[in-house]
Design a protein around this nucleic acid. Structure first.
Lengths: 192, 192
DNA sequence: TCGCTTGTCTAGCGGTGCTAGGATCGAGTC
DNA sequence: GACTCGATCCTAGCACCGCTAGACAAGCGA
């Protein structure tokens, strides 16, 4: 059985290599540059190998998105646990969110802009995505205010952050005023 | 000179036909279905004709975006001028914005999700885009609150609407709670 | 050592955006 | 009214895309 185990280990390692390489390539040159040919060349295998791991390019994007979601959830939790008062927690959360989006644009796109074939807001939503939303909910729920459902508040706050992140990166909003925008958002939305 | 004028008229008409057809096709089957071949077939010309009007597919998307921006600006102004008090104006504005995005998803994508090669937030931003932002600013500036720059407030409010619009349509947010989300957003952000 | 499964690669399909170069048509001139 | 010539349009094709069928080789168990 040891032979089979070794093969499975190697296969899993190659799958991680594919996802990591796709992410790297996307961050370097954008998702348009992530073609199956280029990706195959970078991992030093032929194209069809990709299809023995993933159903298609969509699934590869989805895998990068899941990686990113786990990372983002960890970053959000780290940021909010470093602050002790609710107001500071929410501000740190917002800054961290926008920072993550700005520093990992391709991953952010995989999560929220591109079609990675993932289910959202439903029962079979993958765990990392649920967990990322949960990380938001933990810090935002406590500042929702009386009579406002924490999940609803989180959705609205999240949408605002998402809007800022995407519009800024696409050049629809000038990048320099990010900080006052965050402060305005926290001041008005959060009940502290 | 009359012959030349007629030709120019016909040329302009064909250009409008291209844009309208691209928009129609995109709304019917999504932007992925808008290929230069299909578009050419629909307007009953060959592919290269498209390239005598536009530099490429990007510019066609950009043209649809400009059309959409003008339409959206008109819709926003109509909605806010129908309400007399600031609070009602902002609510109507927000509902109209989200409604436009939901009813014209392909046009909304052309404006804010896809690359139409347009300049944003700069001096050479096309007039329709500036005007759409101006329409937002007219209603939102008056509820920015003391000491908050109207443009900054408009940007934040707009980003929130954009986030709600895109996340909802992409299935990232359940669609049924749109109305309470809008109310929460207006309640908290607008100073009335 | 042999047969066979498993894994990988080469080659190719139908599609994409875009363009070079030849055919055609019609306006202006004699 | 015939002719020239430039504008206009189309056919054909390029390089690339995601994806897959089928040939081939490597390594396992008997």
């Amino acid at each position: 059985m040891s032979v089979q185990e070794r093969k499975e280990r190697e296969r899993a390692a190659r799958e991680r290599l594919i996802v990591a390489t796709a992410r790297e390539l996307a961050e370097q040159q954008g998702w348009d540059a992530v073609t199956t040919r280029r990706l195959a060349e970078r991992i030093e295998y032929s194209q069809p190998v990709l299809y023995s791991h993933f159903r298609g390019k969509r699934e590869i994007i989805g895998a990068v998105a899941l990686d990113g979601a786990a990372e983002m959830a960890a970053a959000l939790r780290a940021a909010s646990s470093a602050a002790d008062r609710p107001r500071a927690r929410v501000t740190a959360l917002a800054r961290t969110y926008l920072d993550f989006a700005a520093r990992n644009p391709a991953v952010y796109d995989a999560m929220f802009e591109l079609d990675g074939g993932l289910a959202f807001a439903s029962d079979d939503t993958p765990q990392p995505l649920k967990d990322a939303f949960a990380a938001l909910l933990e810090s935002l729920g406590e500042v929702a205010g009386d009579g406002v459902h924490p999940a609803l508040f989180t959705e609205v706050f999240w949408a605002a952050l998402h809007g800022l992140a995407t519009l800024t990166r696409a050049g629809r909003l000038p990048a320099e005023d990010t900080e006052p925008r965050v402060e305005l958002l926290v001041d008005r939305l959060a009940v502290v």
